[in-house]
Simulated scan of single mutants.
Amino acid sequence: MRADDFLHPTPAGLYCPQGDFFIDPVRPVPRALITHGHGDHARAGHGAVLATRQTLEIMAIRYGEGFAGTTQAAEGPVTIGGVGVSFHPAGHVLGSAQIRLAPEGGPVIVVSGDYCRTPNPVCAPWEPVPCDVFVTEATFGLPVFKHPDPAAETRRLLASMAEFPDRAHLVGAYALGKAQRVIALVRQAGHDGPIHLHGAVQRLTDYHVEQGIALGDLRPATVPKEIEGQLVIAPPSAFASPWVQRFRDPVISFASGWMAVRARARQRGVELPLVISDHVDWPQLTQTLTELRPDEVWVTHGAEEGLVRWCELNQLRARPLRLVGYEEDEE
């Protein structure tokens, strides 16, 4: 039987007929397996959800305790309708996982979700999972994307803070994962002063601290005149709101893999672009496929055609899935 008989794309997302479940569905379904808590992968309204404990708790923070009919934490392998299911670290954000499927009589399939191989101080590292079919993202699936060392980008931020001590540095970072990673990187670089948080990133940052991740002196960004010259972390949406106008001559910064595209930085008025990504870049993508060497590669959300072409040139069978609905945010 073909791998398509065990997992295939539908308008709602990837569907496993043998287990009768969807993976990261984009609309409410009776049973969903969720790779991580970002809003383009984890939605409310499903009948039942299986995910890591941390992803379930993050979804409860974002959507409320009743975000699904029932929930189950992935704590070791389970069998669903004859399909062996297990969750393995993806290195993307706290609680993120790759989902391994081992259907009776079928190939081993790993759905990676979003993943990253660069060490991340706020989540478990990516784990290679041997498989017959590997479903990979291609967010940065073009050779132009070669992300720099996050520590070097963090030093650029601290150097700017030293050069402009009277200007608040406002760093745009996605509320789940990126904000906390930036804070942790700044702490690793030796900055132990207060870091101020926009209200939209406060609760998820508190959750990271509750999970034992030390992030140092954190304070609410409520009185701009008291935090000029300091570091402020805010979600990207805040920079299109009146909130940012409360600061006098701030240094506007964004932390994202997309900041490698200078036109994007200029378009958004970013003075200090920080290329810090929670996704694999082109070298990591191709390294992963070379090391895993699956029988088939399925490519989703991103530069699908470019990565499929690379696979063909390297004697790997590949196909684009053309799933929609996974482009909600810029990390």
Rank of each mutant, 00 (worst) to 15 (best):
R2T: 03
A3F: 12
A3N: 04
L7I: 14
H8N: 14
P11M: 10
P11F: 11
P28I: 06
V29H: 02
P30D: 01
R31W: 07
I34Q: 01
T35P: 10
G37I: 03
H38Q: 13
H41R: 12
R43W: 02
A51W: 01
Q54Y: 09
T55H: 09
M59A: 09
M59V: 09
I61Q: 11
R62D: 13
G64W: 06
G64C: 06
A68I: 02
T70R: 15
T71H: 02
Q72C: 08
A73G: 13
E75I: 13
G82M: 06
G82W: 09
V83F: 14
F87Y: 14
A97Y: 01
Q98L: 05
Q98K: 09
I99M: 11
L101R: 01
P103L: 08
P107H: 13
P107Y: 13
I109K: 00
S112A: 15
S112Y: 12
G113K: 05
D114A: 15
Y115M: 14
T118M: 14
N120T: 00
P125F: 00
W126N: 00
D132E: 13
V133R: 12
F134A: 15
T139L: 09
L142H: 04
P143C: 04
P150R: 00
A151N: 10
A151P: 00
R156I: 04
R156L: 13
L157E: 01
A159E: 15
S160F: 00
A162W: 06
D166E: 13
A168Q: 02
A175L: 06
A175K: 03
A179H: 02
A179N: 08
Q180L: 00
Q180T: 07
R181Y: 08
V182E: 11
V182Q: 12
A184F: 07
L185F: 10
V186T: 09
R187H: 09
Q188N: 10
G190H: 10
H191S: 14
D192I: 03
I195F: 10
H196K: 07
H198A: 07
G199C: 00
G199H: 08
V201M: 05
V201R: 01
Q202T: 09
Q202P: 00
R203E: 14
L204H: 11
T205V: 11
E210L: 04
E210D: 11
L215Y: 10
G216Q: 05
L218A: 07
V223K: 12
V223A: 14
V223R: 14
K225P: 00
K225M: 11
E228M: 15
G229N: 06
Q230C: 12
Q230T: 10
I233T: 03
A238Q: 05
S241N: 04
V244P: 06
Q245N: 11
F247Y: 08
V251K: 02
S256R: 06
W258N: 09
M259L: 12
R262S: 10
A263D: 08
A263W: 04
R264Y: 11
Q267L: 13
R268E: 13
V270D: 01
V270L: 03
P273K: 10
V275P: 03
I276S: 08
H279T: 01
W282M: 01
Q284G: 07
T288R: 08
L289F: 08
T290S: 15
T290A: 15
E291W: 04
R293C: 14
W298T: 00
V299P: 00
E305A: 15
L307Y: 08
W310E: 05
C311Y: 06
N314D: 11
Q315F: 13
A318F: 09
P320I: 05
G325T: 02
E327W: 08
E328D: 14
E330D: 12
